[in-house]
Write a protein that binds this DNA or RNA. Structure first.
Length: 464
RNA sequence: GGCGGGGUGGCAGAGUGGUUAUGCAGCGGCCUGCAAAGCCGUGUACAGCGGUUCGAUUCCGCUCCCUGCCUCCA
């Protein structure tokens, strides 16, 4: 069984073989830290979290690099609006981003390079490109990449230079030789942050940072590079041009692009203004279940298919997760190592290795869940938990998960004393006072608590 | 205008040239004091029109519709 990944370069599922056997370098384009991330961003980061977890679960040693873009026009603009300096803005935004990721249950990357710490490598790269005739200085002091002098330009996004309508929507910079040339280094204007350089004081263009950081952290040729679909052009195309233009070697062996999260049937995006921040959503969900619920919602479809963001779908994801946890609560899972030859495990793995086919993998997990309920086998329950664990799910304590925010005392002061009412109801039941017992059930139900009577007079409860 | 993705049962969502995806919801049953949970059973769904084929949701062509990138964007 070998992993096949859809490679945007070939547009096929290619067998995945890292450059060095057993070791994978993965670079993911991270956020530009001027504001909270939205749920669409969360989806992309969740997708690559899934990739990293799966690779590790199947024995790869992964170096996961996800950058922080902390210099950019929007950052400068936002800092100016707020009257704070850029560092203050990027520091707090980065901290917020990390906190949101933690709530979602995302693994931290092994390396989280910040663009401003890699100005040196960027300048080296630009100088190298200039020496090879691929970069030139414009009349305005900016340094540009000469797109037509790089033969492979357009190979990732399948664009023909002559078909691109540069300037149709945005004025073309007169300093460029070709309208499609892009900035490597922007000459500083008065009052802007800048770094001294051989090209004059300035700051990096957007694309150069990823080439520099990926090259510095993972080498000239990297195994996997990911991001959202919208990054394919121009960002990733330009990264290829810069990196391959300089090194003469293939930059990325396999490109992965995650599909969008939509609002209605439109892409969720900051420029359209139709977005929710990940934090807004997490704040509205149960404090115990919310992170896993949102991540499950974001990942239950295939990563190359768009998903529509609605409250109903989010609720459904929560219900599904509760179903899994219910099985694990009823049948305490044995702590086991996964035997990949076991039929459920083999099916799950085959699905995951087929370009991370989560819907099929989850279908197998559902069947396993039903079997756990039927057989009450701790070994199968253990397998369910272990398989879920390979992709970062089902690792919470089932009892705590099912009780949700109510058990953690986070639901507010007007919550009824569940344990006391349950005890009272147990007594009422014993006395055959079913009217009282049912009244308590109704009262708790209204408070969002569902009671489940078990054999032997025990009563479990969970959040509705 | 160029390049791209997609239209599957009430909803979500895989997949396949001819056999059950799966989940949620619904319906029936078992269990239960009543419930809940669980289990069992239950759905001739593949945008339309042609073509290829013994047979197409699955391949080919056309049409219609939705949508992405081409500017910052996960």
């Amino acid at each position: 069984m070998t992993l096949a990944i859809h490679n945007s370069l070939s547009r096929r599922k290619d067998p995945f073989e890292p450059l060095v056997k057993g070791k994978v370098g993965l670079y993911v384009c991270g956020p530009t830290v001027y504001d909270f991330i939205h749920v669409g961003n969360a989806r992309t980061f969740s997708v690559f979290d899934l990739v990293v977890r799966w690779l590790r679960a199947t024995g790869f040693e992964v170096t996961y690099v996800r950058n922080i873009t902390d210099v950019d026009d929007k950052i400068m603009e936002r800092a100016r609006e707020r009257g704070i300096d850029i560092d203050e803005l990027t520091e707090t935004t980065t901290a917020n981003f990390r906190a949101d990721c933690a709530r979602l249950g995302l693994l931290a990357p092994d390396v989280e390079p910040r663009a401003t710490r890699y100005i040196g490598p960027m300048l080296d790269l630009i100088a190298h490109l200039e020496s090879k005739g691929l970069a030139y200085r414009g009349a305005n002091g900016d340094v540009f990449f000469a797109v037509r002098d790089f033969p492979g330009y357009g190979k990732l996004s399948r664009r023909n230079l002559d078909d691109l309508r540069a300037g149709e929507r945005v004025a073309v910079d007169a300093a460029k030789r070709d309208p499609l040339d892009f900035v490597l280094w922007k000459a500083a204007k008065p009052g802007e942050v800048s770094w001294p350089s051989a090209f004059g004081a300035g700051r990096p263009g957007w694309h150069i940072e990823c080439s520099a950081m990926a090259g510095r952290e993972l080498g000239e040729t990297i195994d996997l590079h990911g991001g959202g679909w919208d990054l394919q052009f121009p960002h990733h195309e330009n990264e290829i041009a810069q990196s391959e233009g300089a090194s003469g070697k293939p930059f990325v062996r396999c490109w992965m692009h995650a599909a969008f999260l939509n609002m209605g049937d439109e892409k969720m995006s900051k420029s359209l203004g139709n977005f929710f921040t990940a934090r807004d959503i997490l704040d509205r969900l149960d404090p115990v279940q919310g992170g896993e619920q949102l991540r499950f919602f974001l990942l239950r479809g295939h990563y190359r298919s768009e998903v529509a963001f609605t409250r109903e779908h989010l609720d459904e994801a929560g219900a599904t997760l509760r179903g899994f946890y219910t099985a694990l609560r009823e049948v305490p899972p044995a702590a086991i190592a996964i035997d990949w030859a076991e039929p459920h495990a083999a099916r799950f793995r085959a699905a995951m290795e087929d370009d991370f086919d989560m819907p099929v993998a989850l279908a197998g997990l559902h069947e396993l869940r039903a079997e756990v309920n039927r057989t009450r086998s701790p070994l199968l329950a253990g397998l369910l938990k272990a398989l879920g664990g390979t992709i970062g799910f089902l690792q919470a304590d089932p009892e705590a998960f099912l009780k949700g925010g109510i058990s953690a005392g986070m639901a507010g002061g007007d919550q009824p004393d569940v344990e006391a009412l349950v005890a009272e109801r147990t007594a009422a039941k014993k006395a055959k006072d079913f009217a009282r017992a049912d009244a308590i059930r109704r009262e708790l139900d209204a408070a969002g608590v569902v009671l489940e009577d078990k054999p032997g007079g025990l009563t479990e409860w969970r959040k509705k």
